[in-house]
Amino acid sequence: MSTVAEAENKHEALPARPKELAMHFDNLNQQFTTGKLGMWLFLGQELLFFCGLFTAYAVYRANHQEMFHYAHYFLDWKLGGLNTVVLLCSSLTAAWSVRCAQLEQRKGLIITLALTFLAACAFMVVKYIEYEHKIHIGAVWGSHFGVAEANFPEHLKEAYPNLTAEQLQQMGTGSFFAIYFCMTGLHGLHVLVGMGLYIWLLIRAIRGDFNRKYYGAVDNVALYWHIVDIIWIFLFPLLYLIG
């Protein structure tokens, strides 16, 4: 198989370039691996981006364990667990969409992309239910925190019948919720961006843009989606499960 450079040397007529090949790449394989390298650099940066919030979590937890102990009663692990399962399943459909693109299964690609998008929607609906309840009872960030005893979760009342709303506030529980809303909020923002990207992919898949040599967009968005999943894999136990 001769290359473009050889053809140029022999002064042969150049073959038609594939329409998917951008002008600054030699071939589709180079284009694919370059895009992927760029994506991994971005994902490395994403981890550092979230790292600041994980550091805040670690520092507050190390120094104020009681704050986390009381506050975690306010989080419903069942809803958090449901969202974990939803995200894990969406990771499967995202990985499957890459497989479909590689095998040029256009129908399968459209279905898996749509399922990933729907799972992201489901995640945001559950997130909305959680946020709505917390804001309603006053379990919010910083000095705005103020939950009346009547709104304490049942199992918190059972475990600490003498705990007052004032004690809970002075303990700095608002700081926990500042961390909670920042971490889950930034993560939720990533989910929203992912939803936009999956709509974009769906349009392109329906148009028939992708083939076995040109599916970098599907692959790179899936990588992004998996990182969003990985962040949640850490957020779920750290916020919802351990007190």
Binding site: M1, E12, P15, A16, P18, N27, L28, N29
Partner: peptide, 8 residues
């Protein structure tokens, strides 16, 4: 030689 030349 067709578009194959653009593959590695």
């Amino acid at each position: 030689m067709t578009e194959l030349a653009y593959e590695t």
